[in-house]
Nucleic acid binder design. Structure first.
Lengths: 217, 217
DNA sequence: CATCATCCTGACCATATGGTCAGGATAACA
DNA sequence: TGTTATCCTGACCATATGGTCAGGATGATG
């Protein structure tokens, strides 16, 4: 019974503990910020002694860096829906849906990312300058192609992209404000659907997608 | 010559020093977060000894609270343009312009606000529940009126408002990311104008403002 | 000029924090 | 079973931080 597991036992322990620590760290960093978070609090949330964190992650900064990198990967995966699309209604619509889903399921990650960028990205500076720049330029070209094909109005794709990022991430980063304005209640399933529908409708109609294609939202 | 000033000299000193400290604090809080900011660093930026800060502001938290309240007032003033408007094109257009101008001139304040809300508004909780809720409900009624008057599509005003907040504040909160994506350069005058124009066009067209009214952007 | 309130600050303190380490426990493996 | 690599942790340390305070400077007031 243990024969197949035994050789992996130790490796599994490492894998599991790193996950526990990273989850706790993401939560604490998102709630307190990098400076406000303490290794002791992360340890308490993880249910481990503080020294154990330092066994897996030598410094607070290395732990934080790993958290941010994980989030960036989530972004990238979500963006894949963008690529297989044939036009703005499909591509941007799916992208907005995917980002809203992340904001709903993964708000802590979004907050850590926002906090990092707001503070001039001291830790992931290089990521922004390479991976993000490349990714962005690629999508801008795609959207530029849509403009030239007459599939959308001659909008500057850059500002369109910022608007999508801003709006979708707002539902994660400012979820406390949104809940406060919703009678102190989290958004219900219906309200999340309504949010997605409103956002997609305004943006897609705003860039010139014909009304006939909007009905499917 | 000094006769008119003399009786105010001491009061003026207080006023000036409080302003110097608050400006320094806003800058440092926005760059480091509440937990990452130190009274020593704020003192250095202000060019005053640390003990002097504690003379005017007894605790770090009281200083921070004052910074956040000042920002909230800036928001409120900017929102006044909303009210004198006769319809969405004029009202929302002016509101977007005003908020973009704040994002450009006052990014540090926006970041402090964002950080505070992201961390569940521990300091200004009561503000959100009273002032912000009241303000928001009032504007929603105005927009609801516009919908009923047929001046805009039947959009949920709440999500429209969030979209405007998110997009305009994004240019302050994520200015580092935007600059990184702009060849490490701050946006020029022209680029700021283009940003405003793109945002207003997408949102206003997206909610059904007729093309004829968009040409004036 | 004398008195008083306000303003200012170097030196100091208690506490909290990131990080270390020696030594012990556990499991893989020969 | 003995050896080795990995895992675990209580106790400890150096440093940084928010905050205090006694005493001095400055300007208002009468």
């Amino acid at each position: 019974m243990t024969s197949t597991i035994r050789p992996l036992k130790k490796k599994k322990v490492r894998q599991e503990n790193e996950k526990i620590i990273l989850d706790a760290a993401e939560k604490v960093f998102s709630e307190a910020g990098y400076g406000g978070a303490t290794m002791q609090l992360i340890a308490d949330v993880a249910g481990l002694p503080k020294a154990n964190l330092h066994y897996y992650f030598p410094t607070k900064e290395s732990l934080y860096r790993q958290v941010v990198q994980n989030i960036f990967n989530v972004w990238l995966v979500a963006a894949e829906v963008f690529d297989s699309a044939t036009g703005p209604a499909e591509g941007l619509g799916a992208y907005i849906d995917a980002k809203m889903e992340i904001s709903r399921r993964h708000p802590a990650g979004s907050k850590v990312w926002a906090s990092e960028v707001m503070h001039r990205a001291p830790i992931i500076h290089d990521y922004l300058e390479t991976a993000l720049v490349d990714w962005t330029n690629d999508r801008i070209k795609v959207m530029q192609g849509w403009v030239e094909a007459g599939l959308m109005d001659p909008i500057d794709p850059r500002h369109l992209l910022y608007m999508i990022w801003a709006t979708t991430q707002h539902y994660a980063d400012f979820n406390h404000q949104i809940e406060t304005l919703n009678h102190a209640q989290p958004l219900s399933d219906k309200q999340w659907q309504a949010a997605k529908r409103n956002i997609k409708r305004i943006i897609l109609k705003g860039i010139g997608v014909p009304e006939s294609e909007l009905s499917r939202l």
